[in-house]
Design a protein around this nucleic acid. Structure first.
Lengths: 205, 205
DNA sequence: AATTTGCCTTACCGGTCGGTAGAATATCGC
DNA sequence: GCGATATTCTACCGACCGGTAAGGCAAATT
């Protein structure tokens, strides 16, 4: 007796999303391996064993492909920021939560591709949009630090703007040099990394 | 009476070095402005008001050009490390000296081009050489931090390897986003930046 | 079974890249 | 002034890029 409707073979039009996802994943992998500018659409197609025009059935242009990668990576940043909005906690606790989420994101290929690529290669409009989001994230991190200084959980002489900047720098650096520790658990590594950084922000006598 | 020999017009073969320097400077400027992959040899030639083949009279290939830029940038790193080898000082003091030099280097276009480009675009041999130097610098910084932990000038729970990594990340980030503060004095900005970072490494009760 | 629709192919385009050939020109030693 | 040499030019090459045209084949619809 043939299987009933519940376990049917997926109809073709239902595969569209998953195939597009495969393209995005392959693109992220290749960008991390070789850098955005060294990845051609032919490379992506080759890795997926399809022809180059096939990609255009799923993605309208290389620019758009890059932008969608950025959006996925940025969604993780947004998640990290949302997780750190619990107003019952101190600024330092919220900062640690954010940094931990962010660092974990930095170990994924989407996160690494996001940092690796920066905003290069984006069309002017998309570059503008990404820049706006980056600044927004920067300011939110800055505000968390400011809250921490205000409630005494972070050392008083910390400059929120400078600290936000160097924290992003420190964490984004993970994206460049994670090969050395890629055999370790991202979660644990992120935890250790953040612990060391945050120790430097504790208030002192 | 015409000027005597001491103030003569420079002979042609003496201009070679300065012209090559001009090429390297123009390349660094353009790389910082547009990213390495978006700078063609034609762009560099155009900025210098010469034709493209002229560049090849001074530089043997784009790969070689990039490598020489890396060498200049790396010389600054070496200088920073040498300056921090004064064994009369504590580890933290030496760390501050290094970081300040390094941060200042990060504000030059050679330093920014070095970080901006990373090791992408280098031929396999040159990539290997640069990677080796990077690791060497990383270990030297690590050792300075270790000394600081040993002599008590840096907090005991600091992990030298992780700290070295995030310090490089934090400082390299300057190379990506210095546009916002480019009107300020690099020396003062570097000093402020390093002061905030180092405050986090002081020993605590 | 016939036809429409979704998916993927081969073949190709214009443009740009790094790099080169070879001639033209400016400057040097003599 | 003259030949040698250092410097720069115009013109061009093959490779590769992002992107497109047009059709073939298979699955879904009828």
């Amino acid at each position: 007796m043939p299987e009933r409707r519940t376990r049917r073979k997926p109809r073709r039009h239902e595969q569209f999303a998953s195939k597009k996802e495969a393209i995005l994943n392959a693109a992220a992998d290749l960008i991390v391996e070789n850098g955005f500018e060294n990845v051609s659409l032919a490379d992506i197609a080759r890795r997926l064993n399809v022809s180059k025009p096939t990609l255009y059935y799923y993605v309208e242009s290389k620019d758009q492909l890059l932008f969608e990668l950025h959006e996925i990576g940025f969604a993780a940043v947004k998640t990290a920021l949302d997780a750190a909005q619990d107003s019952d906690r101190t600024g330092l606790e919220r900062l640690e939560i954010f940094l931990r989420h962010y660092a974990e994101g930095g170990f994924t290929n989407f996160g690494r591709a996001l940092v690796e690529t920066g905003i290069r290669g984006l069309s002017p409009e998309n570059e503008k949009r990404m820049r706006t989001r980056q600044r927004a994230a920067d300011r939110m991190l800055e505000n968390i630090i400011r809250d921490g200084v205000a409630d005494g959980s972070i050392d008083a002489q910390t400059d929120p703007a400078i600290a936000a900047n160097y924290l992003f720098g420190a964490l984004n650096w993970i994206a460049y040099a994670p090969g050395d520790w890629s055999n370790l658990s991202p979660r644990k590594t992120a935890r250790d990394y953040v612990a060391v950084i945050c120790a430097g922000l504790l208030p002192r006598a």
